[in-house]
Simulated assay, not measured.
Amino acid sequence: MIYLVEHFYSIQGEGKYVGTPSLFFRFGGCNMRCEGFGCKEMANDGTVVVGCDTVYAVNKEHFLQNWVPVHKVEELLNVLSLYDLPEAVDIVLTGGEPLIYANDVLFVAFLEALVAKGHQITFETNGSLTVDFEKYPVYKECVFALSVKLFNSGESLNKRLRGDVIYNIAANAKDAFFKFSIDKESINIALEEEIQSVTMHSPQTKVYCMPVAGSKKELEENTQPLIEFCKAKGYNFSDRLHIRIWDANKGV
C-alpha cells in the first residue's frame, strides 16, 4: 500500500535545484528513523516523537491520521489539477523515503505518466535502497538527490551506507548529487573522512552540505559553521530556504 502524507506547491528549498518552482509529493514510510537528528514532533495523542525533521512521514504509529492510502494512480495524478501550475513543472518525490515504493506497479505507473507529460522528477532519497533501472527504465529519466545519512543520524553504518546502491543510482540516473545534513557539533576531521567514505562510490557526483534544522532558529545556529566547513573543503553549501522563509518543513 502506498501512503501519501501531503502535497504542496512551493519552491525547492535545498540542493542543486534550490529556488526552482516544484510540486512536492511527500510519501509515508521509511527504512530509517534517524533519531540522532533530535528533531521533535508532537502527535495528536500528546506523544513527542524524535527523529528527522519530517518524522510525521516516518512514524506511522503516531501519525497515521496524516497518511492517506493510495489505491489508484489517478489519485496521485489528480493532485496536479489542484494547483495552478506552469507547464511541465518540476515534481519532487520525498518522504520519509519514497524509494520504499520503487517496485510498486502503481508507483511506477505514476512516474511513467509524469515523464510522459514532460515533468522532471527528483527523488529525495537516503540512497540505501536499490533501484532496478533495467526493469523500470523510467528511473533513468529521474534525478536523485542522494541524502546519504551520516554518523549524526544515529543509524548504523551498514544500514545507511550502501556503496553498491550509490554507484548504481549515480551511474544510471539522469542526474544525481549528494546532499548531507550537518549540524555544527558534527563538524570535525572525522566528518570530512566520513563524507569521503560516501563520495568515493561516485567521485564525480557533486556534494551539497545543508544545515540540520527543524526550525529557523536551529538553521541559523548551524549555518555559519557549515559555510566555513564548505569553504575549507570545497563543497557546495545548500541553504534550506523553506525553513529560512517559513520557519517550517511541512507543506510550504
Rank of each mutant, 00 (worst) to 15 (best):
D183T: 00
L161M: 12
F178W: 05
Y167H: 15
A173L: 08
E155G: 12
R162Y: 00
S181T: 13
V165H: 11
R160N: 07
L150Y: 01
F177M: 09
A171R: 13
F177T: 00
V143A: 00
D175W: 02
D175Q: 12
N168D: 08
C142Y: 01
D164F: 13
L150N: 11
F144R: 03
D164Y: 12
S186Q: 14
L157G: 00
R162C: 00
K179G: 01
V148Y: 06
S156N: 05
L161I: 13
A173F: 03
E185Y: 15
K149H: 07
N152Q: 14
S181D: 14
S153E: 08
E141C: 02
D175V: 01
K174A: 06
S153P: 14
R160S: 04
N172C: 10
A170R: 06
A145P: 02
K159V: 10
K184Y: 14
S147P: 07
D183Y: 09
F177A: 04
A176W: 10
E141L: 04
L161R: 14
S181I: 12
F177G: 04
S186Y: 08
I166A: 07
E185S: 13
V165W: 10
I182E: 05
K159D: 08
I182N: 10
Y167N: 12
A171C: 08
L146Q: 00
N168M: 00
D175C: 02
I169R: 09
C142F: 05
K179F: 05
I166S: 04
K149I: 07
D164K: 11
V165Q: 11
F180I: 09
I166R: 12
G163W: 04
N158S: 10
S147H: 06
A145G: 06
